[in-house]
Nucleic acid binder design. Structure first.
Length: 405
RNA sequence: GGGUCGGUGGCAGAGUGGUCAAAUGCAUCAGACUGUAAAUCUGACGCCGCAAGGCUUCGGGGGUUCGACUCCCUCCCGGCCCA
């Protein structure tokens, strides 16, 4: 059994760093943690996509901080809730997923989370699947669960309000999402749930149920969303998403495409460098003399280091400097075989460098395709003997070494 | 059950008989620039084709018409109001 650390400074940092709100309040949770009691906490992840993203990483990072203090961490995979689809942030009902798709997506989650959270050694995090108990719920039990909430409470929810205002449909089963997520708290009998601030409603439903059913106080800790001062979020729709299964190079590059305003908060939420350093970075960012790019490079480096280790971080950084800043060819370029007389367009298609012939042609016409630095202008260009060993570049970051057969 | 409005490209959302492969915004891609793969600017953005042009697409099916995203019939789905 792991020893629970009750160092006040450390407890404070865990309860403050990146934290938006704590329910019912920070003081009570702190007292509980300072008492030396080992608390049981979790955060849930719905496997709607094959990869976790940076937003998930922030909560996983928070879980790991509790883990380091010796608390019991559960990494919950929402294979059941996922079938309903969380209405949070969704203007439209999510399409239903099959169990197969869901489990396929969930496969990589542990590996992707490992950069932050330990699943072995002392005090390992446990992985649970919420289908384990939700599958077994009977209709009768579901009715009993539902009776803990009123329709009024459900439709209060901002997202539902918005949908009603826009005359968009709300399906009955969407009301069950907070219910089932809430029931997770009861089934696992946890003391604390953490999640992004947008998950507050769902997490509080669990607080209500845990109180009503197990007569236990469940704490809820919400984290700030990773966003810049204008509220611009990181995410897919913003085009700057970072996924945990990206290659080190791509991850590094994706971080580099964040807006400058996200640098400090990125360090605070997604890395584990000390808060002292985070403050120093904040100060440095205010100084005109410093180039924010350099601090962002440090952030990108840290992110890759956490997920892939120091060596990969160095390589990713070198790669970025080389290909993006100096516009040179990277150290390692994948070779591709090409037979004489096949067209460049055909080759690009075969290599997945273009989604269609039209796209390949467009890229050539727009000057995005080059061979050893020489822009290919003619879409009719065919592979010739002289091209052997030359580097084909498509767009900013795709490099292939041609091996003529 | 009745009334009424609606279902358009990855998303949001215009378009009401030819000028529509379908405005605009977001996302995406390419280029320029830069302090970065940021911001900004320029261009592209269904598929095939060097091109001319062709093919497929506006909930499904059928019809009217020289011609339909646009009109008619029918079916499916949704919002709102009434019951």
């Amino acid at each position: 059994m792991a020893q629970v650390i009750t160092d006040e400074k450390m407890v404070d940092e865990v309860l403050e760093r990146g934290v938006e709100q704590i329910f019912p309040d920070k003081k009570t949770l702190k007292e509980k943690m300072m008492s030396g009691e080992r608390i049981r906490l979790y955060c849930g992840y719905d496997p709607t996509a094959p990869s976790l993203h940076i937003g998930n990483a922030v909560t996983i990072n928070k879980l790991s901080q509790f883990q380091k203090l010796g608390h019991e961490v559960i990494f919950l995979i929402g294979d059941f809730t996922c079938m309903i689809g969380d209405p949070t942030d969704k203007l439209a009902t999510r399409k239903k997923m099959t169990r197969e798709e869901i489990l396929e997506n969930a496969k990589g989650y542990q590996k992707q989370a490992e950069g932050y959270l330990k699943f072995d050694g002392e005090n390992p995090a446990q992985i649970m699947y919420n289908s384990e108990w939700n599958d077994k719920l009977t209709f009768k039990e579901l009715i009993e669960l539902s009776s803990n909430f009123t329709v009024g409470q459900m439709i209060q929810r901002d997202m539902f309000q918005k949908r009603m205002a826009e005359e968009k449909p709300i399906y009955l089963h969407e009301f069950l999402y907070p219910l089932t997520q809430g029931y997770d708290s009861v089934a696992m009998n946890v003391d604390l749930e953490i999640g992004g601030n947008d998950q507050m409603f769902n997490m509080l439903a669990g607080r209500t149920l845990q109180k009503n059913i197990n007569n236990k106080e469940k704490f809820v800790l919400t984290l700030k969303l990773l966003a810049d001062e204008t509220g611009k979020k990181m995410g897919k729709s913003e085009g700057n998403a970072v996924f945990l299964d990206q290659t080190p190079q791509d991850m590094y590059g994706a971080v580099m495409s964040w807006t400058d305003g996200t640098i400090a908060v990125g360090f605070e939420m997604a890395t584990n460098i000390s808060m002292k350093e985070v403050k120093e970075i904040e100060e440095a960012l205010k100084d005109e003399k410093n180039n924010p790019r350099d601090l962002k490079m440090k952030l990108a480096y840290e992110m890759v280091k956490i997920n892939y280790g120091e060596e990969a971080a160095n390589l990713a950084q070198d790669n970025f400097i080389r290909t993006v800043q100096k516009k040179e060819v990277p150290d390692e370029v994948a070779s591709i075989e090409a037979s004489i007389e096949t067209s460049i367009v055909e080759l690009m298609m075969k290599e997945g460098l273009a989604g269609s012939n039209s796209e390949a042609k467009r890229k050539i016409e727009q000057g995005g395709v080059s061979l050893n630095g020489e822009i290919i202008k003619d879409i009719q260009t065919k592979i010739s003997k002289e091209m052997n060993g030359k580097i084909l570049k498509v767009g900013k970051r795709e490099f292939r070494k041609i091996v003529v057969e």
